[in-house]
Deep mutational scan, measured.
Amino acid sequence: VRLVQFQKNTDEPMGITLKMNELNHCIVARIMHGGMIHRQGTLHVGDEIREINGISVANQTVEQLQKMLREMRGSITFKIVP
């Protein structure tokens, strides 16, 4: 398990697509080339996201998580399992 932190201070999309796997874990499905996450190089396709800013992603839908990420500003921390 590791923590990945980055800054999001604009309306620029993060450039990641999330999916739920068969165990209902949140997985990074795709990283858009040239997007914020791609430029930082901190997340990778297949990484499992456990928490966003200390909030568990368990029992949340992809749509709920994407909305939460769109609305966040400032420092964002993901707890991930590579």
Rank of each mutant, 00 (worst) to 15 (best):
A58R: 11
K79F: 02
L69V: 10
N21L: 04
N21G: 05
H38Y: 08
I52R: 02
I16K: 00
T42Y: 08
G74R: 02
V81Q: 13
R73G: 11
Q66M: 12
M20Q: 09
N9S: 12
A58N: 08
E22I: 05
V57A: 09
F78P: 00
I80T: 06
V81E: 07
I49F: 01
N21T: 10
I37G: 04
G46Q: 02
P82H: 05
M36V: 13
F6T: 06
R70N: 11
M72P: 04
E48T: 06
N53A: 03
I16F: 15
T42R: 10
S56E: 12
V1Q: 05
R73P: 03
N24R: 09
S56M: 07
V62W: 05
V28D: 00
I27P: 00
T77P: 02
V57E: 00
C26E: 00
G15Q: 03
I37N: 03
M32E: 15
P13F: 06
M32S: 15
V62Y: 05
M68C: 11
T42K: 14
G34Q: 05
T42A: 13
V45H: 14
I16R: 00
I27R: 04
E12H: 05
T17N: 07
V81N: 06
N24Q: 08
V81I: 12
L69N: 02
L18S: 01
L43K: 00
E12T: 09
G15I: 01
N9A: 13
N59E: 13
Q60K: 13
T17A: 08
V62C: 10
L18H: 01
M20V: 10
K79V: 04
I31A: 02
K8T: 05
L3Y: 12
I27F: 08
M32G: 07
I52V: 10
F78Q: 00
S56L: 08
S75N: 11
V4A: 05
I55Y: 09
N9L: 14
K79Q: 12
G54A: 05
H33G: 09
G74K: 03
T42W: 04
R2G: 04
N24Y: 04
T61S: 11
K19T: 12
D11T: 15
L43M: 12
M32F: 15
H44E: 14
G35F: 04
V45C: 06
C26N: 02
E22H: 10
N21I: 05
N59Y: 07
R50L: 15
A29W: 08
M72W: 10
Q64H: 15
T17F: 08
D11N: 15
V1S: 07
H38R: 04
G74Y: 02
E71C: 11
C26D: 01
V45I: 10
G74H: 03
F78W: 02
T17I: 15
E12W: 03
M72V: 12
V1M: 15
N21E: 06
L18N: 00
A29G: 08
D11P: 08
G74P: 02
T42E: 14
V28H: 00
I31Q: 00
G46M: 02
Q64S: 12
V4W: 03
V1D: 15
V28F: 00
S75T: 14
K8S: 05
E71G: 13
G54H: 08
I27N: 03
P13A: 09
M36P: 15
E71L: 08
F78G: 00
I31D: 02
G74F: 02
G15W: 03
M68R: 13
G15R: 02
R30C: 09
T17K: 14
R73E: 12
L65D: 00
M36R: 07
Q7L: 11
M72Q: 09
R30S: 13
L18K: 01
E22A: 11
D11K: 09
I76T: 04
E48F: 03
G34H: 09
R2T: 10
I31F: 03
L65Y: 03
P82Q: 14
E22Y: 14
I37Y: 03
N53G: 05
V4C: 05
V57R: 00
V1L: 07
L23E: 15
Q60W: 09
D11A: 11
M72K: 08
Q60T: 07
V45A: 10
M14T: 05
T61R: 07
D47K: 00
H38D: 10
T77S: 13
N21H: 04
T10K: 11
V4N: 02
I37D: 02
L23A: 15
D11F: 04
K67F: 11
G54N: 05
V57I: 14
N59G: 14
D47Q: 01
E22R: 13
T42M: 14
E22C: 07
I55A: 12
T61F: 02
V57N: 01
K67V: 13
G46E: 04
R2L: 05
Q5N: 15
R39G: 06
R2A: 05
K8I: 13
P82T: 10
E71F: 14
N24L: 03
V1F: 11
G74L: 01
T42C: 11
G41V: 04
V28P: 00
T77F: 12
N21F: 03
E48R: 10
N9K: 15
M68G: 09
G35C: 08
C26S: 01
P82G: 08
E12R: 06
I55F: 09
A58G: 12
K67W: 06
K19N: 10
Q60F: 14
E63K: 10
T42G: 13
L18R: 00
M32Q: 13
K67R: 11
K8L: 11
I80L: 06
D47S: 01
V4D: 01
L3D: 06
Q40A: 12
N24T: 04
R50W: 06
I31P: 01
T61H: 08
H33D: 12
V4T: 04
P82C: 08
E51S: 15
L23M: 14
Q5F: 10
P13M: 07
Q7A: 11
V4I: 07
G15V: 01
L65C: 09
N24S: 10
Q7M: 12
T42F: 12
R30N: 14
F6E: 02
V62G: 08
K19M: 08
V1P: 03
D47L: 00
Q40I: 09
L3H: 04
A58W: 07
H25R: 12
G41L: 03
G46N: 06
I31R: 01
M14R: 01
A29E: 13
H38V: 02
N9V: 13
E63R: 06
A29N: 05
N59W: 05
T42V: 12
T10W: 08
L69H: 01
G54T: 05
G15L: 02
S75W: 10
S56P: 14
L18Y: 04
E12P: 01
R73H: 10
V57Q: 01
I76W: 04
M68I: 08
V81K: 10
M68N: 12
Q60D: 05
L69A: 03
K79I: 03
V62L: 12
D11E: 09
G41Y: 02
I16H: 00
G54L: 02
Q7W: 10
G74I: 00
